[in-house]
Design a protein around this nucleic acid. Structure first.
Lengths: 222, 222
DNA sequence: ACTCATCAGCTTGTCTGAGGAGTTGTGTTA
DNA sequence: TAACACAACTCCTCAGACAAGCTGATGAGT
């Protein structure tokens, strides 16, 4: 099928180049072939190739240094996060949560304000209420953990957390539906202990309890 | 003050153009002047201007349509994460790196394969070579840290790392250019120690050294 | 044998001129 | 009035020339 809209050669060359970069043809920081050899290889003129390179440079994938060459600075930032999370598997996701939440818990212990304390306390009691309905319980649990990350006062960590949890919701519900181990008193106490450590400004204990909780979650899946 | 490093004209033209766009000289969706009139206005050749436009097009600011003209598609660079990272401040970014890299180092110690060991070792020696050139040093350093995250065999952590580093590159270069504290033997030894801990499968030591390195980096900025 | 300046041969950077191709508005014509 | 033809724009692509920067080899001088 012939396409109605002809895309510029420079765009096509950029796509083609990005594809080859993604495929791992060149490692991070490695040098690309010279313009004079790459241009005929892609079937375009040198200036067209240069525009393609500029385009990728604008996206932070390439960087060119005069006299030296064109180098790969990133293996594409890409926005296919949805797919990545799906393919990665639940274990990898929980490990990423461990990374973010333990650090956040530690920071939260140091930085929490009275307003943070109120928010965490409220989320904790809300979590205790929903013991029977799985979905509500998962939502309340997520809200509790989010309150802790928010108390760390680091916008990046909060952004990372927010990019995880929506994808995680279904998986968590599914999981809890199969193994009916949720809403137990012990589980609730574990979360209470994490909150207490943050209230007491005990960074080490907060990190340790956050990690312990998530690792037990991970281990229950293996 | 004459600058030592001459930035390419195309980059300068792109910056100049972005500045004028940000100042509101043209409205969203409006057409820019033609290449033949804009190029002399900026004092560059036509192809140079075209490369500048391509660069901004790659960042989603401009879009050119053949026969019609070049149009403004966004007044702000935004690009979701880019602006978040810029506004958040370098401290928050480093804290996020601490979260990701310490966990990754710990996992890498447990999971590293012989291939990972080779990759880390190679990156480390490459890092030692580039002691004088700031840019090359930063790239080599990034490659080293990336090799460790890759050795953790967790695609999500690797993706998170990759989403940080491209934006961090310029800030790191800028920082090192001001404070000339890089490439020191102590610094290289620190990285060597981290690598050794991973080689020895000592997860605790790997995490501790990774954290120590990044925290010293953070503290040097306060 | 070692040091260092020089240079040839790479690389990317920039400009120019020539067409090709698409779009748009205008004027002519039926 | 409506459809068509066309001229005048626009960006797109290529080729060639030269400038500027980097790198490794070469050779002279110590």
């Amino acid at each position: 099928m012939a396409q109605v809209t002809r895309t510029p050669l420079a765009d096509q060359a950029a796509d083609l180049l990005l594809e080859r970069i993604r495929s791992g043809e060149w490692a991070l920081g490695e040098k690309l072939p010279g313009e004079t050899t790459l241009a005929p290889q892609l079937g375009v003129g040198r200036s067209t190739l240069r525009e393609a390179i500029r385009q990728l440079a604008g996206r932070g994938v390439l960087a060119s240094r005069q006299g030296s060459g064109v180098f790969i600075t990133a293996l594409d930032v890409s926005e296919d996060w949805d797919i990545v999370l799906r393919r990665a598997g639940i274990i990898s996701v929980i490990e990423a949560r461990i990374a973010i939440e333990t650090e956040a818990a530690s920071l939260a212990a140091a930085r929490r304000t009275p307003a943070d304390v109120r928010a965490i306390r409220q989320a904790l009691s809300a979590r205790a209420e929903y013991r029977d309905e799985i979905e509500s319980h998962v939502d309340a649990d997520t809200a509790f953990h989010r309150a802790i990350v928010a108390a760390a006062h680091n916008p990046i960590l909060l952004d990372l957390f927010d990019s995880f949890t929506p994808r995680l919701r279904e998986a968590m519900i599914e999981m809890l539906r199969i193994r009916k181990t949720f809403g137990h008193t012990a589980d609730q106490d574990l979360h209470g202990g994490l909150a207490d450590a943050i209230f007491d400004r005990d960074a080490a204990a907060a990190a340790q309890r956050s990690r312990a909780h998530l690792m037990s979650l991970r281990d229950s899946l293996t």
